Deep mutational scan, measured.
Amino acid sequence: QLNLPENTDDWTKEDVNQWLESHKIDQKHREILTEQDVNGAVLKWLKKEHLVDMGITHGPAIQIEELFKELRK
């Protein structure tokens, strides 16, 4: 059970990391997002292209984008 703020805009980069870990996103990809200071407010704007530009491969980038879309519903 994750204990994250209800509003994703309030998520810290550590919260984002924890959420991605719960969805089995590889540590190396989570570390990239942490290094790039991606918090919840930033995550909602990220598209696959942004994630790929940061060095995340296409498969996980699509997965992260789709997971966040599902979360926002």
Score class of each variant (00 low, 15 high):
L20T: 01
F68E: 04
R30F: 00
W45S: 15
N3T: 04
I25H: 05
K69E: 14
A41P: 11
F68V: 11
L43A: 15
E31T: 04
P5Y: 04
G40A: 02
D15H: 04
G55E: 07
D10F: 08
D37T: 12
H29Y: 08
I62V: 13
P60N: 15
N7P: 03
D15V: 03
W11S: 01
K24L: 11
Q1F: 06
E35N: 04
E70T: 07
Q18L: 09
L51A: 04
E14N: 10
K44W: 09
G59T: 15
E14H: 06
P60H: 15
S22A: 08
E31F: 05
K13T: 08
L20M: 05
L33H: 01
L2E: 11
H29N: 13
G40P: 06
K28Q: 11
V16C: 06
T12A: 07
T12R: 06
Q18G: 06
K24H: 11
L46C: 05
H23P: 00
N3W: 00
E21T: 06
F68W: 10
Q27F: 11
G55D: 00
Q18H: 03
W19E: 00
D15G: 01
K44L: 10
G59W: 13
I32P: 01
A61S: 03
W11F: 11
Q1Y: 10
D37P: 07
Q27Y: 13
Q1M: 07
Q36T: 13
N17I: 02
I62G: 15
H29K: 03
E6W: 02
K24S: 10
T34K: 04
E70C: 10
H29Q: 13
Q27M: 03
A41E: 14
A41G: 10
A61P: 05
M54V: 08
K28D: 10
Q36C: 06
E21R: 04
E6D: 10
N3E: 03
H50L: 02
W11C: 01
A61M: 06
E31Q: 09
V52R: 10
F68H: 05
E6Y: 08
T34A: 09
N17F: 11
K44P: 12
F68P: 07
Q36D: 08
V42W: 14
N7Y: 08
S22F: 09
Q1P: 01
I25D: 01
S22R: 03
D26A: 04
V52Q: 14
F68M: 09
T8D: 04
N39M: 02
E31A: 08
K28N: 10
F68Y: 05
R30S: 02
T34F: 03
E6Q: 07
L2R: 06
Q27C: 10
N39H: 08
H50Y: 14
D53A: 12
L4D: 06
H29I: 12
E35L: 06
N39A: 04
D9A: 09
S22W: 03
L67G: 14
N3K: 05
K24D: 11
G59A: 14
T12L: 03
D9I: 10
K44I: 07
S22N: 07
M54K: 13
V42S: 15
L67Y: 12
Q18I: 02
D10W: 04
W11A: 00
E21Q: 05
P5Q: 05
H29L: 13
N17C: 11
E21F: 05
H23F: 12
T8P: 09
Q36K: 14
I62S: 15
I25Q: 05
W11N: 08
L4G: 01
I25T: 05
V52D: 12
D53S: 07
A61C: 12
N3P: 04
E21D: 08
L4S: 06
V42A: 15
T12V: 02
D26V: 05
K69S: 12
R30G: 02
D26G: 05
N7F: 06
K24F: 07
N3A: 00
Q27K: 05
H29E: 15
I25Y: 02
L51V: 02
Q1A: 03
R30D: 02
D26C: 10
I25F: 14
Q36I: 09
F68Q: 13
L46Y: 12
I32G: 09
V42N: 14
K69T: 14
V42R: 15
T8I: 13
V38I: 12
V42P: 07
K44M: 11
